[in-house]
Design a protein around this nucleic acid. Structure first.
Lengths: 320, 320
DNA sequence: CTGTTAGCGCTTTCAA
DNA sequence: TTGAAAGCGCTAACAG
């Protein structure tokens, strides 16, 4: 496989000139440029990008850490990132963490070793002090509220949006409200539960721990939730569900079990995914693709750290 | 940021010795090793992986090209690949093609430039002659039957599995059978449609072009299909759907429109995804994660090309 | 406009 | 056991 030196020899010029031609730099005479181009043509020369990376100290690779790749929430963020990456000539390295800490650390290590120029962490697992140790090696961008930290983020205020949804449920006459969330831990999970507690306080309802369903990620979790609901002697009249997949699962199973929605059970989802539209589920819309776009842009240009909040929107449909 | 030379100087040894220590090569005296280790410690040395790549001509990066990242079919393959990649210390570069040819070519170009060691193409877009031009640059593995080509693949026989499902429908008494597929083009799409035509011939039924629904990818497509079904004056009594998401969409919408399943309309899906289980959809199970695993293994060890067929299994539930 | 040359940071051969 | 030195392929400062 030919390299830049071979081309230089073939074209009867220096490697610099070849480099200039390859990278479209000015100041190359027509003849030499042609000669180089011809040599490249006949020798089927391809530049070795690793040499470029080494030389430039930059890879045009952005890492992106997500817990699952088969989850629409993250898939949409990835889509936003992927589109913008394409526009800017960057490629993506995907780290599927399955919420395992060591996998997130692997991603951080790649940043350290300069195999990626920046890292976007969509759902942090590591403690902040672990992250801190990597901050010097390159930009790390988060999807959570980091206004109290020295790192950049594009985030939605989970406290605010959960509160908004809860208020809506209350406005619609519900007092016994339960919630379904993913992890209880992590900043986001905590914010949601805090919003829930504050809401209960405000409307003067007691906190029922069995009204909190956690580890809800997918359609299939809806089944367990409905089952548990049936077994309760004082079930909630409404459920705020942190993602549409789960909400859809609940709605589907409720129908099977002849639980009338929204009369016996009101459901409000999150994300406004296609399934929510089809199934007419009331939900909170989050501009995920846009969020991905902004995440990427921050990743490649993080001169000064900043935190930006993304706002959400209530989409009223038929499940409340 | 310290480099290997700095460490050598600090430890009072040569770069070679440092390299040996870093890479756990033998023949380093205890004292020198300790000295090097200490220097690494105090200087917070991190090896620059790009230099390693350049020097070795290998990146430990595997590219994986998928049309969408928010589709369970591909998400599961990615999961299988991701798991095995982890075991083997490889990282993944994700190319979301959206079925746009130039994005697939970008991936091929990265192979050419040696930024990835191999490429897995899960749903090819380019023509074969385009691919051919890249075969010399590194292993390219496919998810489609390539037994007539000089490239490796792990695939399921779409003709066979479609035939299997169609036979089952026929066995259950259906003669007016329609199909829902993704792309009509591409090897897989063609195989499916061929199986369909052969089936019709065999049972002596005419080919009705309106019985083929194409571009069906997601839950939401179910809605359009049901709508079209309603408008037909001679609708099929059964539908073979090439993926469970779509099948679920059809089942959901049918219920809304009071179309009784399986009595008025039988549905058989593909993939055996969680949603199929929840909704009791009869489906064809494909071991996607296992397929991902095998794809990866071939990608990193493709000395001699080979094609391996993955077999599928009918899962009988309540929609037929 | 063009070429020389010194890196980029690491691996590996070869000789000692 | 060890180290000098020659790459790996490309970029960019500098001199002309």
């Amino acid at each position: 496989m030919a390299n830049i030196k071979d081309i230089a020899k073939m074209a009867g010029v220096s490697v610099t000139t070849v480099s200039r031609v390859i990278n479209n730099h000015p100041y190359v005479s027509f003849e030499k440029r042609e000669a180089v181009l011809r040599a490249i043509e006949v020798s089927k020369y391809e530049k070795n990008i690793n040499a470029v990376h080494l030389s430039k100290g930059k890879t045009f690779l952005i890492g992106i850490a997500i817990p699952f790749s088969n989850h629409p929430f993250f898939a949409l963020i990835v889509e936003g990132i992927a589109n913008e990456a394409l526009n800017n000539n960057y490629k993506l390295v995907l780290f599927q963490t399955n919420y395992e800490e060591f996998r997130e650390i692997e991603a951080l290590d790649m940043l350290k070793q300069k195999q990626i120029d920046a890292l976007i962490i969509c759902s942090r697992i590591c403690q902040w002090d672990t992250i801190d140790a990597y901050l010097d090696y390159g930009p790390i961008i988060f999807c959570e509220d980091t206004r109290d930290k020295k790192v950049s983020s594009i985030f939605m205020d989970h406290y605010k949006s959960f509160s908004k949804a809860l208020e809506y449920l209350h406005f619609k006459g519900h007092r016994k409200v339960g919630i379904c969330v993913g992890r209880r831990t992590g900043f986001n999970g905590e914010q949601r539960i805090l919003a829930y507690r504050d809401f209960l306080n405000k409307i003067n309802e007691p906190f029922e721990s069995e009204y909190i369903f956690s580890d809800c990620y997918d359609f299939e979790n809806g089944e367990e939730i409905v089952q548990r609901l049936i077994n309760m002697n004082n079930p909630p009249s409404a459920l705020l569900v942190s993602n549409d997949q789960v909400a859809a699962g609940i709605v589907t199973c409720s129908k099977e079990k002849r639980i009338s929605i929204p009369h016996e059970l009101a459901i409000i989802g999150f994300d406004n995914q296609p399934i929510a539209k089809i199934m007419n589920i009331t939900t909170i819309e989050i501009p995920l693709v846009e969020m991905g776009r902004k995440l990427f842009l921050r990743a490649i240009n993080n001169k000064n750290i900043s935190q930006e909040e993304i706002s959400v929107k209530l989409v009223e449909r038929l499940t409340v």
